[in-house]
Amino acid sequence: MPFFPYLAWLWRAPVVWGLLQGIVLWMYIRYEPRAHTAFQRAIIEFQAAFHGLMRWVTRPWWAMRRLEELERQNAELFTTLAELQGTSTYSTYPVGACADFAFLKDYRFLPARVIYQTFHTHQNYAILNRGGRDGVYPGLGVVGPEGVLGLIAETTATYSIMYAIFHRNVYLNVVLPLHGVNGLMTWRTPVLNRVEVDYIPPYVQVKEGEEVWTTPNSLIFPGGLRVGRIEAVENDPRQGFQRLRIATYIDWHRIGTVYILLPTRGVGLGSAPL
């Protein structure tokens, strides 16, 4: 390297050898399609892995920023809500429980919290933190985020006792929406999260996996609320009807916020509170 003496240290066999190896390997990768494709894929995978790593590393900061943003939005929404005339806390409703939204104009949903519930009896019930002061009275339906949960049996000023659908004295009129056939839902077999539907005519070809909804002619619930899915069909010719085993959408072991259906018009039992 006579012209660049300060680069003389580069003019050594291992350095030149490594440089040449890199050049010819690059030429091979450029020339060979499989190698070129694999090289491009490796670069993309490396980029994706690097981005994933950086995302993982910076996740706490992003989460903190997102939290601050959500808190700010929440504050703005609360402000807007407080400024609106005539708004109440009944504005939320469980979308997952509603298969048919036509009834929404006749009902509003009162959020409630379960403060006690039974598990191992034949008459399971729960105590909710809403009572007569909130407009709750016996006979109202209660739904969870996923589906039908029970009905209000007794109330005090501040609390209510809700009979679950896993109560042997609770009978509910349900419908198979695919066939338009009504049946009677009971909890005869004491297994939580499982109910039976009787009186399905034998000529109806029911299949496992079909949904079961509340029927519109029920006095407690509006039509179109989800109850569960058919798990098994028992066709006993001695009975003269089919019996369905239903896996309920609601999980009695994981009840979060529940919603009491308050009628806004003269529908159901709720139209005539006693």
């Binding site: 291992p14 050898w17 190896q21 010819v24 390997l25 030429m27 091979y28 020339y31």
Partner: peptide, 24 residues
Amino acid sequence: FGGVLDILFPPIGLQTFCGLWVWG
């Protein structure tokens, strides 16, 4: 020599790369 091999028996670069390993 590796370059001549690469031209005569492609793919380009592979023979030179492996040959330089031997030489190195």
